[in-house]
Structures are given as structure tokens and as C-alpha cells.
């Protein structure tokens, strides 16, 4: 499933030209598709979320089914701050949402990551079901099944208002995504990133060189939860609304699909998979909602059977094959 990066200590960390591509595309899309900016913002936000999922699944090797919980926690934090406490500054909300999600990630991580395999999957699922039930029943805080409305957001830095066309939302999300991408990229190239690869490769060996494996997993888990929380806050701010579906098992499943579609453990898999999924969904799901889910299901089964590297993996093997063909 995962591609294997073979060296960290001998790797060059300079930004390759191809790595600029997503940002060029994102900026170009801003000017080329002014009518689709709210979809665009949604894509950027979900990329952020899927990126955080990749950190946990792809890089730390923790299979979780409860990742949406952190997204939801971030979303509700931002929403509740605005609706109940009158804190409407978006950056403040963002910081708060990231912090709260990170802390919850830390607490649950300490608890959950002592286990492994099926128990771990179960625990992540149970905890996210717990969060969902809290959001569902604590109606005076969250609005329950009707969702939390009455969320208003002040202009960013007191100046950039969230406009009807989603221009501000788009650029704001893009900026947050860019910063997080840079941090994640740095982290993955660091000794910390190398040790994550070590844990995934051989946990026994990692313990045998004195690594406190569990502590490190809790660290990634909290970082990832924090990022998911940021994404949740962005969603609240751009929609001015939070619903229960920001927390559900279905969302956890869907983001897993996006990640797998793009390619697990590839950093840019999150970008490609999410964009492809959400654009296709936008085009198809409204017209053929049932067929859409059927298609996604079939696609997923197909991926597990035939294309475990996702789109980027397919691209890799294609270029490898081309290269071999050209040499011959």
C-alpha cells in the first residue's frame, strides 16, 4: 500500500518543480473559474483534512476510522466560539480549533495508541461515535441534528470580509493549506519523519534502538488531529454553519477514499485524490446520487484489488515503465 522512501539522511530536501504544480493550479483556478470558488475552497479544506489523515495512516501506519472526530471538534469549536461566546475573529477561532483538536488528539492518542490492530480501529470508531453522540444530544450547545447556525465571522485581520463569491474563503483556505503543507513537508524530512518510517518498517527494531515508539506515535497523532481541527474550523468559517455530518463515520470513510484514490503516504496523494473525488462528486453526485456511491464503492474495491498505490502510484509505475521502454 505504501511507497517506500529509502533514505532520509541522504535525501535532498530542495523543492522540486513538480511540487509547485498544485499551487500554480490553485492560483490559476482562482482566476479561471470564478464561479466555482466555493467548491474550490471546499476542495482546499478537504485536502487539508486528508493530508492530516495521510500523516496518521500513511506515515505513522495507524489505521483509524475516527479521524472525522477531530475535524468535527475543530468545526464545532469555531462555531461555538462564534455563536455562544461572540468570538468572531477567524484567526483566533482557527488557533483555538487547532489547539482543542490537538489536545483531544493527545488525550485520546495516549489512550488509544497503547493498543493495536483491530482494537485500535474499534477504539477510534467508538470515540468518534461518542463525539457524534455528544454533538447530537448537547443541543443547546451544538444545535443537535439541526446543526449550529447563527455563526458569523468577522473579516480576516479586520479587513478581508468573507464575500458571497467565496473569493476570500478560497484564498484564506489556500494560505492555511500552504503553511500547513510546508510544515508537514518539513516534518516528514526531519529526523522525526525518518523515525516514523522506521516505526512503520520495523517497530521491534525501533524499540531496540531505544526509541520511545509510543510517545512518537502520540505526537504525530496529536499533530494530525490539530491539522484536522484547523480544517474543521475553515469549513465552519466558509459555510457559516456546522452540521453533524462533520463528525460522522461516513466522513471518516469518505476521506479515506480520497486518500487512497490519490495514494497513501505520498504527501501529494491528498491533493490529487481529494480534488479528483470532490470534482467528480460535484459533477455526478447531484444528478446520480445512488450511482455515485455505487461507483465509489466499485472504485474502492477495484483499487484494493488492482491499484493499491492510487493515482500517484499508477503514475509512478507508468513512468517507470516508460523509462524502461525508452532504455530498451
Amino acid at each position: 500500500m505504501h511507497p517506500h522512501i529509502s533514505t532520509f539522511y541522504l535525501a535532498s530536501v530542495r523543492v522540486r518543480a513538480a511540487e509547485l504544480l498544485p499551487w500554480i493550479v490553485a492560483l490559476a483556478a482562482f482566476f479561471l473559474f470564478p464561479d466555482f470558488l466555493s467548491l474550490g475552497a471546499r476542495i482546499l479544506i478537504y485536502i487539508l483534512l486528508v493530508l492530516s489523515l495521510d500523516l496518521v495512516i500513511g506515515y505513522a501506519g495507524i489505521v483509524t476510522l475516527g479521524h472525522a472526530a477531530f475535524f468535527g471538534i475543530g468545526a464545532y469549536t469555531a462555531g461555538i466560539l462564534s455563536a455562544h461566546f461572540g468570538i468572531k475573529d477567524p484567526l483566533l477561532q482557527l488557533a483555538a480549533a487547532g489547539t482543542v483538536a490537538c489536545l483531544v488528539g493527545f488525550g485520546t492518542g495516549l489512550y488509544v495508541l497503547r493498543t493495536s490492530g483491530l482494537t485500535l480501529i474499534m477504539l477510534t470508531l467508538a470515540i468518534s461515535a461518542l463525539c457524534l453522540e455528544v454533538a447530537n444530544k448537547a443541543t443547546s450547545w451544538t444545535g443537535g441534528a439541526d446543526g449550529l447556525s447563527g455563526v458569523t465571522i468577522a473579516p480576516i485581520l479586520g479587513y478581508f470580509r468573507f464575500d458571497l463569491w467565496g473569493k476570500t474563503a478560497y484564498l484564506y483556505s489556500l494560505a492555511v493549506l500552504f503553511v500547513v503543507w510546508w510544515l508537514v513537508r518539513t516534518l516528514l524530512n526531519s529526523p522525526f519523519g525518518a523515525s516514523l518510517a522506521g516505526i512503520r518498517d520495523n517497530r521491534t527494531r525501533m524499540e531496540g534502538i531505544g526509541a520511545l515508539v509510543n510517545r512518537r506515535l502520540v505526537q504525530v497523532y496529536s499533530i494530525s488531529a490539530g491539522i484536522a481541527g484547523l480544517a474543521g474550523a475553515l469549513l465552519t468559517q466558509t459555510n457559516q454553519f456546522v452540521g453533524l455530518n462533520a463528525l460522522g463515520f461516513e466522513l471518516s470513510g469518505e476521506i479515506l477514499v480520497m486518500l487512497v484514490l490519490g495514494g497513501v503516504g505520498r504527501l501529494y496523494g491528498a491533493f490529487i485524490g481529494t480534488a479528483a473525488y470532490l470534482i467528480a462528486q460535484d459533477q455526478l453526485a447531484k444528478k446520480f446520487p445512488e450511482d455515485w456511491y455505487l461507483g465509489v464503492g466499485i472504485l474502492l474495491v477495484g483499487v484494493t484489488m488492482f491499484a493499491r498505490g492510487g493515482l500517484l502510484g499508477a503514475l509512478d509505475s507508468l513512468t517507470a515503465r516508460l523509462r524502461r521502454a525508452l532504455k530498451l
Binding site: Y9, L10, S12, S190, P191, A194, G210
Partner: peptide
């Protein structure tokens, strides 16, 4: 990298996030 992981662990730098391993 096999050896470097062990050395980094011993030196206590393996938890560092912001500087490249290389």
C-alpha cells in the same frame, strides 16, 4: 539510514521536527 536512525536516537535528535535529517 539504518545506522543513522540508531545514532540519532542516541544523540537525542530523532524527535526534531524542523530541521531536515540530511
Amino acid at each position: 539510514d539504518n545506522v543513522a536512525l540508531a545514532i540519532a536516537e542516541r544523540m537525542g535528535v530523532s524527535g526534531q521536527l524542523f530541521r531536515a535529517a540530511s
